[in-house]
Computed example of a mutant assay.
Amino acid sequence: MIGSDPKADLRVYLQDARDVLLWKLDGLSEYDIRRPMTPTGTNLLGLVKHAAGAEAMYFGETFGRPFDAPRPWITGEGEPNTDLWATADETREQIVGLYRRVWAHSDVTIESLDLAAVGRVAWGSRSEVTLHRALVHMIAETDRHAGHADIVRELIDGVVGQRTGSGNVAPGDTAWWGRHRSRVERAAGEAGRGA
């Protein structure tokens, strides 16, 4: 759009990805939001927990505004993958509440700084990062995990898409999707035999 505000545009995309990630929890039991659905343990609540930690670091520590939260899993001081699953003592409400508090903290950082503002990360090969780059990174990171969440949610109960009533998925009932999947499987089999 001509005359749009680049920072506002980036914030819209970040918030959309945040909302999608949380929507994937709606209507599911405590078991289902924690259930490991891949061999590496990917689960919905763990993805939210991870996104909260990543965002707290990128828009907190990086720009000299540390987010007040338990340190081990946000800074990587805990055991490997601590940020990618929830213990039985960590509730949905705690993790979702934490994520929403991180959003508020991040939004203040984003609002108060220019896109060219430079922050410093304590990890990776680049020690300096602009707010612009941090925003792009967190949009990509959150969208990536929203995609993971979409697949995990589909495996749990068949729900797909970006939000309730979203038109971003082809229309079709269970029978239609079954025929579609069979067609995709046949094509894969034919291609596999030809290789």
Rank of each mutant, 00 (worst) to 15 (best):
G194T: 14
R163Q: 08
T87S: 15
S4T: 11
V121Y: 00
V159S: 04
E61H: 05
R92H: 13
G3I: 13
S4F: 13
A122W: 02
T142S: 01
S29Q: 09
Y99C: 01
D9S: 03
R181N: 13
R186E: 06
R183C: 07
V96Q: 09
E55S: 03
N43I: 03
A146N: 05
G158M: 06
D19Q: 09
V184N: 09
E111D: 10
I74Y: 10
V129I: 14
R35V: 06
E141S: 04
L47H: 01
R144N: 10
R35T: 05
E93S: 14
V129A: 08
D107P: 03
R92Y: 08
E90F: 13
Y99L: 01
G189I: 08
R71E: 14
P66F: 01
A140S: 11
R11Y: 06
L98Q: 10
A134S: 12
P171E: 14
I151R: 12
L98H: 07
A88V: 14
S106T: 04
G147E: 13
R101Y: 02
L131K: 02
N43F: 12
F59R: 00
S125E: 14
R34Y: 01
P171D: 14
D9Y: 06
A146F: 05
G158T: 06
G41L: 11
A116D: 10
I74K: 07
I95P: 11
K49V: 02
